[in-house]
Structure formats: structure tokens, C-alpha cells
Simulated scan of single mutants.
Amino acid sequence: MGKRVIVIVLDSVGIGEMPDAAEYGDRGSNTLGNIAKARGGLNLPHLQALGLGNIAPIQGVDPSSAPKACYGKMAEVSPGKDTTTGHWEIAGVVLEKAFPTFPKGFPDAFIQSFEEKIGRQILGNEVASGTEIIQRLGEEHVKTGRPIVYTSADSVFQIAAHEEVIPLPELMQICGIAREMLDGDLRVGRVIARPFLGEPGNYYRTTNRHDFAIEPPHKILLDYVQEAGLGVMAVGKIKDIYYGHGVTEFVLTKGNQEGADKTLTYLEQDMPGLIMTNLVDFDMVYGHRNNVEGYAQALEEFDVRLPEILARLREEDLLVITADHGCDPTTPSTDHSREYVPLLVMGNTLRSGVDLGIRTSFADLGQTVADYLETTSLPHGQSFLAEVFQPK
């Protein structure tokens, strides 16, 4: 049946501030640790058994005396703390310059040109929380048909629209226009469609969100896996993040539970190669809304699903659980946080309980996947396969 690697990215599940966190306004951020502390503990028995509590102190998640997985954490070399930067580095792209951010909104000249091209004036053009701004400007948007434009501390251009005012196809077209226009010094990491529904005072975002990313600057891990004649199965927003590079099959999802379901579906197939999943609810639904209890429950719900995933691993499967950045819901900020990300690696042919330490780049993971699947090596990253592989 051939080798498979399953990479599950728990979007925003960071595990403690990086040394340069203060430069990003993130001193003290620790998504997992602070949630556990605020909550009075987390109940994650299956992640505990793998060794999550061996990586860093997490209330309720004890270190295991015999971890079933190899464990460690990864530092991000690239500047930034956004989804694109984190996922790209996993796949072998290390940025020298961070994607631009716009703390005062986008330039007036750009907004004017954008309005002319889409045939509508806009509302907003400010840094805002997505859930807050639709409550504040949603009623005016419904009355005028003017889309709501906003950004955050991350490199994003977000467009919110009520689905009954600007239908989804038109919203996607508007976002596509923005993506084409945002180039050069305005080349943000993502343009995000943020559709919503509801009535004044009770507007809510739907799951029809769509990310318009940019093309990676060179070939990435997914390309090399595909070129080796292997499958690349993308679950959730993985295809969008990588601009479709290397993806042979994909499925979009509406939440963590469906993401787990689709991952299990791919695990039941015989296609060798890479299954890569992004579970976005941690970030989108809870982290950005500073919902500590919701985030904690989502972590515990994933832990409940973990035995199903582990039960479907075949002899030559390698499973990796990690993240792409932090988004600490216990801090005043609703933005991402500059954090280490957890690294849990297990498989039937691997050693267990190996302390992988602090990896110097997310690219170490991608290089290890390339090493295991015997594809072209990545331009960045140090493989740790030799540390975890169990010789026959």
C-alpha cells in the first residue's frame, strides 16, 4: 500500500511565547498553557498519552512516563505569525520579509480604485474584530449594500457581506478582484471572504468563508510529493493556503468535526502519499473571539476523536500533530500570537518517547516528511527522521 504521512494542523494551538514575542506585542502568550490555567485544567487523556504534557506544563495534562509519540516543539524562522507564513514554512518556504500589515487601514487611493472596480462603495477599512464589526456596521451594510472591509494585526484584507445582500458568487468575485489588486507593497498574505447572516443585533458569520492566498515563491513539499507519483490529499483550507500547489485531491470542510471525518475517509483509502488537514475552529471560532471555554471544549472534542484516527493508522503510516501559530484567547488581543507550536510524531515503525527538543524551524517537519516519502529535499529544514525511525 505504500508509505503515508498524515499531518494534522491544529490551527492556532500554540504552546508558549517565542523569544521574540514581545516584538509582536505577544509577551506572555501561551495558548495551550493559558487556556488550561484559566479553565482550571484541560481533559486531554489521549494527547497526554502521546506526550503533549511532556512538551510544556499544561494544567490537567501531565507528562507521560512512557509517551506513545515522539514530542517536541517548533520555532518559526520566518517573521510573522499568520496562517500563510506558518503553513508555508512547514512546506519549506522561509520568508525573509513579513507580509505587510495595515494598522491604519488600507491607503485611500487603493480603496477608491477598489470601489471603482467592484462598482460599490465600502464600509470600514479599519482594524477590527470580525464578529464586532459586523454587529456595528451590519445594519448599514444591509441598507446600503456596501461591503465591510477590515483587517487585523495579521496580513489580511477581509470582506464581510450578508449573504442575502451580496450573494456568495458576487462576494467571491469581489474578493478575487481585491486579490489581483493587492500586489507589490500591498501584497497581503490572504484576502478572506467573510459572509454572514442574521438580523440587527444578532448577525453571525457563516461557514462559507473562503481564503484567497498567494502563490508560493518556489516549489513546496506538496509539489515534490506529487512529482514523486504520490497523492496529496488536502482537508479544510489547505488547498487555498498553498494556492493548489501539489494537491491531487481536496475537500473543504465546515468545522473541526467534519475535518476529522474527512481525514478518516482519506485514511480508509489506499493512496500512498500525504494527507494534510487544517482544523480551523480553534482559531476562527474561538481564538479570535477570546472564547476560552469554547477553545477548551474544542480541544477536548479533538482529543475524543483522536483514537479513531490512531486506530486507522497502517503499518507504514506516520502521523504528525502540530500547529501554525498561536491565538491566545486569554489575552486582550483577538489576533494571532507569536508562539512555539507543539510537535507530536508517531507511527508503528517509529520509536516512541523520543524528545525532539526545540526545532529551529517549522521546515524541519516538511523536510522529515520529504525524507520519509523519499521525495526531493526541501531548501530549508533539518530532517529528524533518523531520530525517530525504528531500524528493522
Rank of each mutant, 00 (worst) to 15 (best):
G28V: 00
G28H: 02
G28E: 00
G28L: 01
G28S: 01
S29D: 00
S29A: 05
T31G: 02
T31E: 00
L32R: 01
L32D: 01
G33P: 09
G33K: 09
G33T: 02
N34R: 03
N34V: 04
N34P: 09
N34Q: 02
N34S: 01
I35T: 07
I35D: 00
A36H: 08
A36V: 05
K37P: 03
K37G: 11
K37Y: 07
A38I: 10
A38L: 08
A38H: 08
R39G: 02
R39I: 05
R39A: 04
R39K: 07
G40I: 06
G41D: 02
G41F: 07
G41C: 04
G41V: 06
L42Q: 02
L42I: 04
L42H: 00
N43A: 08
N43Q: 11
N43M: 09
L44V: 02
L44N: 00
P45V: 04
P45M: 04
P45C: 01
H46M: 11
H46F: 10
H46R: 13
L47R: 01
Q48R: 02
Q48T: 04
A49R: 07
A49T: 09
A49V: 06
L50R: 07
L50P: 02
L50K: 02
G53I: 08
G53L: 10
G53K: 11
G53V: 08
N54Q: 06
N54D: 04
N54G: 04
I55Y: 06
I55W: 07
I55S: 07
A56Q: 11
A56M: 13
A56I: 12
P57R: 03
I58K: 05
Q59D: 08
Q59A: 06
Q59M: 09
Q59L: 08
Q59R: 08
G60T: 03
G60E: 04
D62S: 13
D62K: 13
P63A: 11
P63N: 07
P63C: 08
S64E: 08
S65D: 14
S65E: 14
A66C: 09
P67G: 03
P67C: 01
K68E: 13
K68V: 12
K68L: 13
A69K: 04
Y71K: 00
K73S: 08
M74H: 11
A75E: 07
E76G: 14
V77A: 11
V77Y: 10
V77L: 12
V77I: 14
V77H: 10
S78D: 09
S78C: 10
S78H: 09
P79N: 13
P79C: 12
P79L: 13
G80V: 04
K81W: 13
D82R: 10
D82Y: 10
D82H: 11
T84A: 14
T84L: 15
T84D: 15
T84I: 15
T85G: 13
T85V: 11
T85I: 09
G86T: 09
G86Y: 10
H87K: 15
W88G: 15
E89W: 14
I90G: 15
I90M: 15
I90V: 15
A91L: 15
A91D: 15
G92V: 08
G92S: 12
G92L: 11
V94G: 14
L95H: 10
L95A: 09
L95E: 10
E96Q: 12
K97F: 12
A98E: 14
A98N: 12
A98K: 12
F99R: 02
F99M: 01
F99D: 01
F99K: 01
P100H: 01
P100A: 03
P100W: 01
F102S: 03
K104P: 01
K104N: 05
